Amino acid sequence: MRASVRSLLALVRHELRLLVSLGLWVTRRRQGIGDGGTAFGYARGQGPMMFGFAFVCVIESLTMAVLLRDFPAVHRVVFMLDVYTVVLVVGMHAASVVRPHVLDAHFLRVRRAAHVDLRIPLENIAHVRRELRTTHERADGELNLAIGAQTTVTVELAEPVAHFTFLGRRRDVRLVRLHCDEAADLVQAVKRARTAPSPLG
């Protein structure tokens, strides 16, 4: 029972983040950049797919409206669910836009929409490279954050970092693959940040 409550709370938090992301997207703001942080987007390639999915949902809603026109109570319920589905689909794309990867003087913050947010200390990065991969098999200690089935940057860690899944389960990861629209720029920026003198030095 307790696990069910945690799962429900995780789902509610996720959907609230999507709704907040819609507001940020409409106002052209981004979340979590901070002073001195540099944002690296990853949503450019998924936009057409997400809006295509939203369009299919709209067509499905119109079809159901015709099929259920003689059942107004059922039609209202189904229509509300269809509208909410479209809002969530657009919200997922909005979350990807307003929650980019962020690099600052201390961390590489790796994100995917509203459900992954992993801070990797720069001193814990052993190697970073540009690497295009289109297949990703699940493996212990690896986190694959593909967009459109692709990752373009691979980050190897000297020590594992804790990643918490959507439902709160802890996974220790030593290798992270992610997608970045400007993969080469991100790789070079991480390498520069790792070799820069400490601001406290």
Rank of each mutant, 00 (worst) to 15 (best):
A95Y: 02
L19A: 15
S4W: 15
D181S: 04
L68P: 06
Q31F: 12
H101M: 05
A54Q: 04
I147W: 00
D104H: 07
G23S: 07
V12P: 04
L108T: 09
T151F: 08
L11S: 12
E131C: 11
A10W: 06
R29M: 05
F51T: 11
A113R: 08
E15G: 08
E60A: 08
A114W: 04
A39S: 11
E159F: 01
D181W: 07
R28M: 07
L175C: 10
A113P: 02
L11V: 05
I59K: 00
F164A: 07
D172K: 05
R2Y: 13
R109L: 04
M80L: 14
L186W: 09
T154C: 13
L62S: 10
Q188A: 15
V20E: 13
V58D: 00
V86T: 13
L143N: 03
V173R: 00
R6C: 06
H127I: 09
G37R: 02
D140T: 12
T152G: 04
G141T: 04
H163T: 02
D104L: 03
T38I: 11
P160L: 04
D185N: 08
A184S: 11
P199D: 09
V74P: 01
V98R: 02
F71Q: 14
A94Q: 03
F51K: 00
I147G: 00
C57I: 02
P199M: 06
P160D: 07
D117L: 05
L68H: 06
V97R: 06
R130W: 00
V77G: 09
I125T: 01
Y84V: 02
V56E: 07
G36D: 03
S21P: 13
F71E: 12
M64A: 11
L145M: 05
R130N: 07
T38Q: 15
V173G: 00
G47Q: 12
A184Q: 15
H136C: 05
H163A: 08
V128I: 14
R28P: 00
L118H: 03
R171M: 11
E159C: 00
G148D: 03
V20H: 13
E60V: 01
F164G: 01
R130L: 10
S61R: 04
R6D: 12
V26H: 12
I147V: 15
S61T: 05
V74G: 14
K191A: 06
R2H: 08
V58A: 11
H179L: 01
Q188L: 10
A54D: 06
L178A: 07
R177C: 09
M64I: 01
H179A: 11
R109K: 14
V58N: 01
A139P: 00
K191H: 08
L22D: 01
L118Q: 06
R112A: 10
A183Y: 06
E15I: 03
R2N: 11
V90T: 12
R2I: 12
G34W: 12
